[in-house]
Amino acid sequence: MAKKGKKLVEAAKKVDREQLYGAEEAIALAKETSTTKFDATVEVAFRLGIDTRKNDQQIRGAVVLPNGTGKTQKVLVFAKGEKAKEAEAAGADYVGEADFVQKIQQGWFDFDVVVATPDMMGEVGKLGRVLGPKGLMPNPKTGTVTFDVTKAVQDIKAGKVEYRADKAGIIHAPIGKVSFDNEKLIENFETIFETIQKAKPAAAKGTYMKSVNVTTTMGPAVKIDAANVVIKK
């Protein structure tokens, strides 16, 4: 069993593990108990009452956070002709065709998100076994397979977050950095919370949001009272 650091142990003492905190209080507490010297990521974890073995209960999508994530994403776009020019103009870090397929097959991964136009998916499909396990395969559900490459690239650069329920029905999503103002983190949290709420499958039975936790990189988890989250508009 891994030994917990002294700082983390001390930070954890400030959090009541049995208490459900309001979203604003939880986020403030997560920031307060951050133990890293670097600007840690603030992340939310949703444990959902869904059966991911069933196709009609799988949840996957993307949302643009109003205040970004604090991280600049490197975007690779597979496109040709005019669409390649559009991608470059929109700010894509890399744009190409078969040349990038070959680079990736040789072990190159200097990018965070992959976008592809539908006519390029034949080429990109060759990378399924490489990109799939890393969660990098373009997908229409997350808006990364599209002819509107300008919007796709701009959304990613603006703070687009992809989310996907794992086998246990848990979704992890970043909502910013510890250096963010509390108000910006709360606004980002409310955006992702509302998005996950609306994504509830019609076939899901019982309690949908079983638990919601906010945490920072290497920091203790703080439980949020999901039943009383109020979305301010």
Rank of each mutant, 00 (worst) to 15 (best):
M120Q: 14
A62G: 10
G135N: 05
R129I: 03
V161F: 13
W108N: 08
A158V: 06
A168L: 11
E123M: 03
M120W: 06
A45N: 10
G143C: 07
T69Q: 02
P133N: 02
T72Y: 01
K71L: 03
K54H: 07
T150S: 09
T146Q: 00
K80C: 05
V161S: 05
F147I: 02
L136G: 13
L76H: 08
I50L: 12
G125S: 05
Q57E: 15
T142F: 14
N67Y: 14
G125H: 03
E183F: 02
F100L: 09
M137K: 06
V64F: 13
G61S: 01
A173Q: 05
K80W: 02
I104D: 09
I171Q: 11
D93K: 06
F180W: 08
M121G: 00
G70R: 10
D99C: 03
R47G: 01
Q154Y: 06
F147V: 00
K71T: 01
A165F: 12
A158D: 01
F78H: 10
G135Q: 10
F147L: 00
P138C: 08
H172P: 08
K126R: 07
V124M: 01
V153P: 00
V153W: 02
E88V: 11
D99F: 01
F78R: 13
G125I: 02
S179Y: 04
D166R: 11
F109V: 15
E86V: 13
A165H: 08
N182D: 08
A89H: 02
D166M: 09
A79M: 12
F100T: 04
P138R: 05
D99M: 05
D99A: 11
G128K: 08
P133T: 02
K85V: 13
A89M: 02
G81W: 15
K167A: 13
M121D: 07
A92N: 00
D166S: 07
K184Q: 06
K160L: 05
D51W: 09
E86S: 12
D112P: 10
K167R: 14
V130T: 13
V64L: 07
E123Y: 00
V161I: 15
G135D: 04
A90I: 09
D99K: 14
G176F: 07
D51F: 13
K54Y: 11
P140G: 01
D51H: 04
Q57W: 06
A62E: 08
D155T: 05
E97I: 00
I171A: 14
P133Q: 01
T150V: 15
K177Y: 02
G61T: 04
W108R: 12
D119T: 07
K54L: 13
A165L: 11
K71D: 01
A90T: 04
Q57Y: 07
